[in-house]
Each structure stands twice: as structure tokens, then as C-alpha cells.
Simulated assay, not measured.
Amino acid sequence: MRRLLLSVIVLILSGSLARAQFTDCSSGLLQMPSALMQEDGTFMITNNFLNRHSLPASGWSYNTFSYGFNVTFWDRLEVGYVCTVFDGKKVGTGSDRTMIMFNQDRHFLGKFQFLKEGEFGLDWIPAFVVGVSDPTTGSSENGYVDGNVEGTGNGYFNRMYAALSKTFNTSWGRIGAHLAYQYNRRRDYPLNGPCAAVTWEPVWLEN
């Protein structure tokens, strides 16, 4: 009985909270992109605890957190900026204690929705987006102009993706089917393949 109750609670929380990507601070699912967007004019401030197992091993071997924001324009374009905190060195020698959580990785993200769900009066059409995360690398001193985000250096969260999403209303709530393809050229966490998910928003949580 306890396991059943716990499962129900997890499903309820998933339905109400799975609207932002865990590491990317953008609209989407917990660990994959989706084609659903925020409403036009939405300004979202994010602050996430990040477990070390969900982060690139070349940059983090410990738990940390990120913060950022993103804005949705014209119902189709979403842009954002994310800072992920990591250990770094102060000027001078410094002790191990002064290095803890001193620096941060910064990256941009963008997402454009080419098709809205049910567009052109055709109910069967799914939403379709193309997006990119952490597309450039470099430093704040030299500018973010280097597109070389391969390997294991900066550009920790680099990826490009295309995603489809379709939702269905049922007596139990809204069911969503999501399919995406992610790609990057990283060696520390290579992405080159499809991903899929099903979401459920219970009827008592619908807007």
C-alpha cells in the first residue's frame, strides 16, 4: 500500500513539475527537450539543484546548482542564459576551502517552434521545434566567439536537437507523447540518438 501511495505521489508531482529541463533551465521535460512552449511574454527565473550524476564528468564530480532565466517571444522563440556553479581558483594561491563553489560556467540556449500543435486547422499536426544549447565556448574576456565545443573542454552543455510533441485530452487528464533527436560532438557525454517520453497532467491539475 505504501509503494502504491508513493507511486501516485510521484506521478502527480511529475505531471505538475515536468515543465522545465533539469540542467538547461528551459521549457521541456526533466532530462530531454520537448516541442511544447511557454506562452508569449513568459519570463522564467530558474534555480536548480543538480546531482553530479546528471552532469558532465569532465566538469563536475560533485553536486552543485544552476540559476538562470529565459524569455519567450511571439509564441515561437525561447532564449535563455544559464550559470552552473563549479569549484575554481581565486587570484593567488588560496586554500581548498576558498576554491569551493567559487566559479561558474555560463551558456546560452535557444529554441524555435516551426509548427504549433494543431496548426492550419489540422488537429493531427504535432508541435515541432529545433533548439540548441551552449553553442559557443570561450571566456568573458575573449568573448563567446569560439564554436569549438567538441571534446571535453568548455561547452559542457552543448547539444542540438529537434523535437515533436503531441497532447491528447482524456477523462483522466492530458496525455503527452514526445519524441526528439539530440546530437553533439562531446567525448565526455556524447549525444547522438533518439529519446522519447510520455507525460500525464492529471485532470485536477489542468489550468
Results as ranks from 00 to 15, higher is better:
V198P: 06
G143Y: 01
L5Q: 10
K166Q: 09
E39N: 12
Q38R: 15
I45N: 01
V8Y: 13
A196S: 12
I12T: 09
N192E: 02
W172N: 05
F102C: 00
G88T: 05
N192K: 15
K89S: 13
M37D: 02
M99P: 05
Y62K: 15
A196L: 12
V82G: 04
D188I: 05
Y81M: 10
L11N: 08
L36I: 11
W124I: 14
C195S: 15
L13V: 10
S58K: 07
F120N: 07
N158T: 15
V79P: 01
Q21K: 11
S171M: 08
V71R: 06
C25D: 12
V91F: 04
S26W: 06
N48T: 13
F43K: 11
G147Y: 05
L115I: 00
A162E: 11
W204Y: 15
W204G: 06
E78I: 00
P33C: 08
G59Y: 03
L4R: 14
K111A: 04
S16R: 07
D188C: 03
H178P: 01
D24N: 11
L11F: 09
L164T: 04
A197E: 11
S54P: 00
G153Q: 04
W74H: 09
L50R: 04
Q38E: 11
E39K: 15
E150L: 08
L191I: 08
R52F: 09
V149G: 09
E117A: 11
T199W: 02
K89Y: 13
I9H: 07
S7E: 10
A127F: 01
R19Q: 13
A162G: 15
G15C: 12
Q104V: 01
E141Q: 13
M32Y: 12
L17H: 07
P135T: 09
V203Q: 07
L77H: 04
F69G: 12
L36K: 13
N154Y: 08
R187V: 06
K90G: 12
S139V: 02
G28M: 03
S61P: 00
N51M: 06
D96L: 10
F22G: 06
V198C: 07
A57T: 12
F114L: 14
I175A: 10
S66P: 02
Y161T: 06
G94W: 03
V8W: 12
K166W: 01
G28D: 08
N103P: 02
V91G: 11
A197G: 14
I175L: 15
L122C: 14
Y189A: 09
F168K: 05
T46N: 07
F86S: 09
A162Q: 06
C83L: 12
P135W: 01
R174W: 05
V91H: 10
F43Y: 07
K111L: 12
V85L: 03
G138W: 01
F128S: 00
S171L: 09
K116W: 02
S165E: 03
Q21S: 12
D24F: 11
R52C: 05
S133K: 07
S16N: 03
Y181P: 04
N142Y: 10
P33V: 06
G68L: 04
Y183W: 15
A196M: 13
D96K: 09
K111T: 01
D134P: 03
V198S: 05
F157C: 03
V8H: 14
H53C: 00
N142L: 08
Y189L: 07
G41Y: 08
W124M: 12
L5H: 06
